[in-house]
Amino acid sequence: MEKNKIKLLWDIFFTFFKISPVSFGGGYAMIPLLERAVTVKKKWVEEKDIADVLVMAQTVPGSIAVNTATFIGYRIAGLFGAIAGTIGIVTPTFLIIVALAALFLSFQHNPIVEAAFMGIRPAIVALIAYAAITIGKTAIFNTVTGIIAGVALILFLFVPVHPIFILIAGSYWYFIK
């Protein structure tokens, strides 16, 4: 591989590497930063194109932050660019979560940590309920979508089938109808 290409790949890797630790809470927080880095600073993407990139990153499975890095990496430097962008944005958060996991596993039986998690577990239930309400606001907009959500909930609660099957059934709904 020629020298310039390697330099470009390194540049892609490092640009996303720097943005990655900022992405607290799902990645939307880092969108403005990411936008500025790739349009204004690096001029990899024109500002009018960034909206398309983000829509596409949102539609594809996976997190919007990682998908944006992959997509932009691909546009600048092909397959290797895509890989460089993905590894760049995944590595810092990977290292942080592994460090936190190791820390938690060694302190989880400490009485203070145990007490803290007695409080945190219900908070996780609240966060998940909040996520359901937030997505429900855009997903449920008429009787049909309301019934689909209700039936899905009952199936998830009482039918011991892999959730993937119920999700696939949901995505085919429109075409069956």
Binding site: R121, A132, A149, F156, L157, I166, G170, S171, W173
Partner: peptide
Amino acid sequence: NAFYGLRPVITGLIAYAAIHF
């Protein structure tokens, strides 16, 4: 079109997760 049915199912899935947890 795929998301028309998928989004409400995801809503049900997350609501289930809250109850289950």
